[in-house]
Design a protein around this nucleic acid. Structure first.
Length: 594
RNA sequence: GCCCCGAUAGCUCAGUGGAUAGAGCGUCAGCCUCCGGAGCUGAAGGUCGCACGUUCGAAUCGUGUUCGGGGCGCCA
């Protein structure tokens, strides 16, 4: 029990006793701003006084008196100061001793939920098209997703991390065009995914010069539909090799998954057809015979036809099946979302993909449903989709359609964990040869144009710089391979921290110097502090004891931070800003009458 | 046209109703024969885009507005 928790609970009790009508008032408690206001202060009397129409000072005094008998031993004194704050003076040495005891007892489980929550949450993240190397934008997604998984698990939820493989889209077809029609062959001089990134860019350029190549792409897409075709086999082999590389990259930063879900399996096993039948049975789709969307299957949505600022005609209804009969990404995503909740009477086949660095098995879906899994996948109570902010609209279409199908509970339990993209800072853009305009702060990545920073490149650069730093130090008998291992670990910390320290709604202006910095507010600082702490413990030659640190760190103002860690983890999930908050989009408030 | 996001120190960002708005980087001045200088101490630097409103109290909530980014695709 942290100081803040202990005091909050007691204040809540006092409020309930004195002001029963306002028992639900949110009790806030925070570090005091001045030493004469004690160590912790609460403004709780202020809103209470407002509602009760009494003097805030009186209310605070009354609360203080009511609290007095029940305060923990480490509270030395309490005061009330204008305009109505209640201040608590903490005996740091006493508290430090108690806190240390608590931490030593909990060990590595400190801060984690003591009891499991009987709820399953599926977290979908990473989701890289299987045609090219992962870049830093993908890395932001994966770091966020993996962190969400860890926080939810720490809170006691059963969590399943799924990585969705979009292996049936045009991007894969583009690379096949490069291999089959531009005569590209892989010579092993680059990692396979880097090589495919290069081909992808070259093919985009080739389309401009030889528009006839687009016909080849259409043919490739048709051929992929037939699973037995040579092209389909080639596509699967290509995607498998790329995904293998993605997993290798992510395992470098200690990101692991439970299941790879393949879009091609969703199609092959009839998930989409099943979802489509449900939609049409409930008359939720339109099938216009004329106009722009003639021949498509459409879910009516938003405002219908609009003229955009640039004068173009657009339609905010969402096409789920194109006029040529091919299902769109949003359609497939809807079927996938339904499967996650166990709403389809269908299941994938499964087989073991690999054993990961964390020791856990990674499973993959297959299109052979007779291959049974070791445990049940999907069937979630709640689903969190880590997807960038540009996809807010199609995500809302998925959730709203779920609701229209009658699954409003599941729609409510669906979260689009929306985050902004990574873009190049002006400096980084210039370094990559992008023309820089005065006054323009960020520049979008473009895989098509080959303007990007690959995840492995960034990690390699970070590791190399850190390795140089290490070799410049007195090595004290450290081997070169040890240096490299340390550099890799530090690089991972630096990159993960950099990608996580920004607010979700903030575009990260990617800057090489910033991302690779090894001083100040960085992951490396944390790792350094940890190493020093371990070193101190090692030198003392004995394990920490509950009664020792009380004198060691009695003056440390960071005690409250350490004691606050458990609450921090819980708040990430439960509070207003929590990860599981359902983010509703106002535009979806009024579905059109159908 | 409609919707979403951003705007806080020279730069990059924290801070979702409480007391005197914080950090890193950069700048300047200090600190290496007890803990790892990837560090520590201090200084300078801010009408929180703008206006009005709600409130005892607003960077925070509301309305309007300016600038920047994104979305409204038979792309994914």
């Amino acid at each position: 029990m942290t100081i803040e928790d202990a005091l909050t609970t007691r204040i809540q009790r006092a409020v309930a006793a004195l002001f029963p009508a306002m028992a639900t008032t949110r009790v806030e408690i925070r570090p005091s701003i001045k030493p004469e206001f004690g160590d912790l202060s609460s403004p709780v009397a202020l809103p209470l006084a407002k509602q009760a129409r009494r003097s805030p000072l009186d209310v605070a005094q009354q609360l203080r008196a009511a609290l007095q008998p029940s305060l923990p031993t480490y509270v030395r004194d309490t005061t009330v100061t204008p305009p109505g704050f209640i201040n608590f003076f903490i005996d740091a040495a006493l508290y430090a001793g108690l806190l240390c005891q608590e931490i030593l007892e909990a060990g590595e489980r400190y801060g984690r939920a003591a009891t499991p929550i009987p709820q399953k949450i599926v977290v979908e993240h990473t989701n890289i098209n299987s045609n090219k190397a992962a870049h830093v934008g993908h890395l932001r997604n994966a770091c966020l997703g993996d962190t969400v998984v860890r926080i939810l698990r720490a809170n006691g939820y059963t969590v399943e991390a799924q990585n969705y493989i979009d292996d049936t889209g045009v991007q894969v077809a583009d690379v096949i065009v490069g291999f089959r029609y531009l005569g590209k062959t892989y010579d092993g001089s680059l990692p396979f995914d880097f090589f495919c990134s290069q081909i992808y860019t070259e093919v985009q350029r080739a389309y401009q010069a030889q528009p006839a190549l687009l016909d080849y792409r259409r043919q490739v897409l048709r051929d992929i539909e037939d699973r037995t075709s040579d092209i389909a086999r080639f596509a699967k082999e290509l995607s498998t090799k790329i995904v293998t590389r993605h997993i290798e990259t992510m395992s470098r930063v200690n990101i692991n998954y439970d299941l790879l879900t393949w879009e091609s399996d969703i199609l092959a096993l009839g998930f989409w057809k099943h979802a489509f039948d449900l939609l049409t049975a409930r008359h939720l789709l339109e099938h216009p015979t004329e106009g722009e969307l003639a021949g498509c299957w459409v879910v009516p949505f938003g405002d219908g036809n609009v003229t955009t600022t640039d004068g173009q005609q657009r339609n905010s209804d969402k096409v789920l099946v194109k006029s040529d009969g091919v299902v769109t990404y949003t359609g497939k995503d809807l079927a996938y979302q339904m499967w996650k909740f166990g709403l389809l009477d269908l299941d994938f086949g499964y087989r073991l993909w690999a054993t990961q660095l964390n020791g856990l098995s990674l499973w993959t879906t297959t299109h052979d449903p007779t291959q049974r899994p070791p445990r049940q996948f999907g069937h979630a109570n709640r689903v969190v989709n880590v997807i960038d902010a540009r996809q807010a609209y199609p995500q809302e279409v998925v959730y709203e359609t779920l609701r229209r199908l009658g699954y409003s509970e599941q729609a409510e339990q669906s979260t689009h964990l929306s985050y902004q993209v990574v873009a190049l800072s002006a400096g980084a853009a210039e370094a990559l040869g992008v023309p820089v305009e005065p006054g323009k702060m960020t520049y979008a990545f473009s895989g098509r144009q080959g303007i990007e920073v690959k995840a492995d490149e960034l990690l390699d650069m970070a590791a190399q710089r850190l390795s140089q730093h290490l070799s410049a130090q007195r090595s004290e008998g450290r081997s070169k391979s040890t240096d490299e291992r340390i550099a890799e670990r530090l690089a991972v910390g630096a990159v993960r921290y950099y990608l996580l320290k920004f607010n979700l709604q903030q575009i990260i202006p990617f800057d090489f110097d910033d991302a690779l910095r090894n001083t100040g507010d960085t992951g490396i600082y944390l790792q350094y502090a940890y190493a020093r702490a371990c070193n101190i413990l090692e030198r003392t030659g004995r394990a920490p004891e509950a009664n020792q640190p009380a004198t060691l760190c009695s003056q440390d103002k960071n005690l409250g931070d350490i004691g606050g860690i458990p609450r921090l983890l819980v708040e990430e999930v439960q509070e207003r800003r929590g990860l599981l908050r359902h983010r509703a989009n106002p535009r979806c408030g009024s579905p059109p009458a159908t």
